[in-house]
Design a protein around this nucleic acid. Structure first.
Length: 772
DNA sequence: CGCTCGCTGATTTTT
DNA sequence: TCAGCGAGCG
């Protein structure tokens, strides 16, 4: 047996080596699911499958990146890079770009994020003069999203009597009209929303059998991670690709299905064996992560759910400490108790990085943050608004989007009067009216105001044409320039820099920093691509990568030694030695929205299951008796889920007693911790926005602070480079040259780095220093 | 057209 | 608590 297969247990190994037909791997929490996937891919590669014929779909960018790294260490960097591995959204956006004209989209289509879609819906609602209290944008958005995830186009929607009737009954009969207009506007703008990426892929495959055939034979083996979280659109894409060769392996855990609000359908995994007759089912039941008490407590909880695949997750680690339940009087004290407990436990040889605080909603993070800060505990928060959603960043990105695709309506609207150039809402609305009347994009109207009879006075007309000139100028230059050059030109010549740098306030400075960060990120992205051999890194290249990037992409370096704070959703797939799950109260966890719906409550229970099973050694559950909600303090009762856990695995903590004694403790302790912490501490406590910089997904670590423009890079003398030389790279550290090929400007060296595996580097760009 | 002030309403989770 | 929106004024 091959060496690496010995690193697997028997059931893992069986799952890995079975490649003859469809298989389902039911992987309990902490059972080595990722391990199976990575080894299986490695196994397929050893069997001679070329990497580019393997399609591996994950749920998050982070999961894809990590798996790629692990495969790179089992094989090599180059092979790993050629795998088709990524999220559904990123993989199929790539495919859609190359096949775009088949379905009537430009290949440089924009991807609308949730904010863009909502804003577009708002303006449609306004145009239709609908009351946004009845047609709440959020509700409309999720209805459309659900329809798309169920592959119901607006045409199908109009014709579906049931849906139309349902809308009439819910007093929102015009939903179908909104959906139709929304879709037309997206198409007009050359834009797809997140759901379109999946819907349009399905349409592409449905209507173009030759295209489907191409990808069918191209992807000889398909693997899907987190299958329990796939929706119908994703499920069908996979099925289309696999129904002929049936070389498919899906991995998941029905007990961890927590995304039904996004259309995920747990039946996809429950019904998999019926979809693929003859499918083999492998169960991974041994949990390597947590102690017995934690596993048993989680099991006793999840058994309260009805629908699930039968399995027995067990741990052979030590029994461990019981799951603690702590109550406190208020949310404030809850935070304080958690912070105190972390400090206590740190005395027992734990690092800050060994702790995670998990909560149901992002809103809960604030008060916890405050408590940690007062105690001087360093922390990092995941989630919340991402780097790209910050106004100043999104404004710049909008310019870039507009340059690549001037029909992009949402980008157009953001940029038209930013920086202020005297084109206000009135003029914008006139543009929109003209555009909708003629069924063209805003940009088209802007290019021929007279032709579309735009009712503006001379002054405004001049302002509009100035704006058009500005953007057209960028578009022309963009043909030749690289992403970083055009971005630099944009911030300078649009006036963004001068506006932003006038503001000396704290927020103003932070905005400037974010802008710098963005530019640096773009430069970094370009440099990485060049090192990989790209000729010119265009703005379109950059945007196509960046639009699907989320905030979860943080840097290992930055993660230093800090407590992790995140929602339970965000914590899926992660593990920590000590986990605090806070806010276990009715109407919060389970959320108030789900309490009347048994299915939804089951999902909340699974969510809680996910939370508990993140813990390796200690798991603390806390609830407060009162909590601030909507600015007002409200009484709350303990979560029903606390009663679902078998009491024999629970320890109801005495140190946070329910009586007044805790309050007294708090006061005295609070006194001994001055409100303000030393400055260094405060700065340290925040995750720098640097951590979220662009291009992270493409590379592993961050460049040194020195900002670099490639033109200024001194091409160090590498003529003395030879195979076997020890070299140092700014980001990859030390390594050994294993091969050199090409000459002059195209000379490439293959370097094997100690921590980053093999890389091929263009000597022209890679800043290598020979150290031996 | 642009800015400021005050009100209101929302809060579940994310690619 | 806070962001986002609308009204009203300069």
């Amino acid at each position: 047996m091959e060496e690496y297969l010995k690193q697997l247990n028997e059931s893992q190994r069986e799952a890995v080596v079975y490649t003859d037909g469809p298989s389902l791997v039911v992987a309990g929490a902490g059972s080595g699911k990722t391990r199976v996937l990575t080894y299986k891919i490695a196994y397929l590669l050893r069997q001679g499958l070329p990497p580019q014929s393997i399609l591996a779909l994950t749920f998050t960018n982070k999961a894809a990146r990590e798996m790629k790294e692990r495969i790179a260490s089992l094989t090599d960097e180059r092979t790993a890079r050629r795998l088709w591995m990524g999220t559904f959204h990123s993989i199929f956006s790539r495919i859609l770009r190359s096949e775009a004209e088949r379905i009537g989209y430009p290949s440089n289509f924009t991807i609308y994020d949730a904010t863009d879609s909502k804003s577009l819906l708002r303006s449609i609602l306004k145009e239709m003069q609908l009351d946004d209290k009845v047609y709440r944008p959020g509700m409309v958005q999720s209805r459309i999203s659900n329809a798309k995830n169920a592959l119901i186009t607006y045409k199908a929607y109009e014709q579906n009597k049931e849906l139309v009737q349902h809308d009439i009954d819910s007093k929102v009969p015009l939903l179908r009209e909104i959906y139709k207009r929304y879709q037309n506007r997206c198409q007009q703008a050359g834009a797809m929303d997140f759901d379109d990426l999946l819907l349009q892929t399905n349409i592409l495959f449905r209507d173009h059998p030759d295209v489907l055939e191409k990808y069918r034979s191209f992807f000889q083996f398909v693997l899907v991670d987190e299958y329990q979280d796939t929706n119908f659109a994703q499920h069908l894409i996979v099925q289309r690709l696999c129904e002929v060769h049936r070389r498919i392996c899906v991995v998941g855990d029905d007990a961890q299905s927590i995304y039904s609000f996004r259309g995920a359908n747990i039946d996809n995994i429950l019904q998999f064996k019926n979809q693929y007759p003859g499918c083999r089912i492998f169960k991974l039941e041994r949990n390597y992560r947590s102690t017995q008490n934690i596993v048993n407590a989680a099991n006793s909880l999840i058994h309260k759910n009805t629908k699930q695949i039968q399995k027995t997750v067990y741990s052979e680690k030590e029994e461990g400490s019981k799951v603690a339940i702590c109550s406190s009087y208020s949310d404030y004290e809850e935070g304080y108790a958690v912070a105190g407990k972390i400090n206590d436990m740190r005395m027992r040889n734990y690092d800050y990085a060994d702790f995670a605080i998990l909560y149901r909603t992002n809103a809960q993070s604030r008060i916890l943050e405050e408590a940690l800060r007062k105690r001087g505990i360093p922390y990092k928060i995941y989630g919340g608004l991402s780097f790209y959603q910050r106004k100043e960043v999104k404004d710049v990105i909008s310019y870039l989007r507009l340059i690549v695709n001037p029909h992009d309506e949402e980008a157009f609207k953001r940029v038209l009067n930013y920086p202020a150039r005297g084109i206000g809402d009135t003029t914008l609305n006139k543009l929109i009216v003209a555009a909708t009347d003629h069924n063209v994009s805003l940009w088209t109207v802007l290019n021929d105001p007279l032709g579309y009879a735009l009712p503006v006075n001379n002054g405004t007309a001049k302002k509009l044409s100035d704006f058009r000139e500005l953007i057209s100028g960028f578009i022309e230059r963009n043909v030749k320039l690289s992403a970083e050059e055009i971005a630099a030109a944009v911030v300078k010549e649009s006036g963004i820099v001068s506006v932003l740098f006038q503001d000396r306030s704290v927020e103003g400075i932070s905005k400037q920093e974010n802008l710098q960060e963005l530019l640096k990120g773009i430069a970094e992205f370009c440099e990485i691509r060049r090192e990989e051999g790209a000729e010119r890194v265009s703005l379109a290249d950059f945007l196509s990568e960046v639009s699907l990037l989320t905030d979860q992409d943080n840097d290992k370096e930055e993660q230093a030694n800090k407590v992790t704070m995140m929602t339970v959703h965000a914590a899926k797939g992660l593990e920590f030695r000590n986990v605090f799950v806070v806010g276990l109260e009715e109407d919060l966890f389970p959320s108030a929205m789900s309490k009347d719906n048994p299915r939804a409550v089951e999902e909340e229970r699974r969510l809680f299951y996910v939370a508990i099973t993140r813990a390796e050694e200690n798991c603390v559950l806390t609830y407060a008796k009162s909590r601030y909600r909507n600015g007002q303090s409200a009484m709350c009762s303990p979560s029903r889920f606390l009663r679902d856990i078998d009491t024999k695995y629970i320890y109801a903590s005495a140190d946070v007693a329910t009586d007044g004694s805790f309050a007294g403790t708090r006061r005295s302790s609070a006194f001994s911790f001055p409100f303000r912490q030393p400055k260094a501490m405060e700065e340290d406590a925040y995750v720098s926005p640097v951590a979220q910089a662009v291009g992270r997904q493409a590379r592993l670590t961050r460049m040194e602070a020195a900002s670099s423009s490639p033109s200024s890079v001194s091409t160090s003398d590498l003529s003395g480079l030879y195979v076997g030389a020890k070299v140092r790279h700014d980001r990859f550290g030390e390594g050994e040259v294993t091969a050199i090929e090409g000459e002059g400007g195209n000379a490439k060296a293959t370097v094997s780095f100690a921590h980053f595996g093999q890389k091929q580097l263009l000597l022209k760009f890679a800043r290598l220093t020979i150290i031996e």
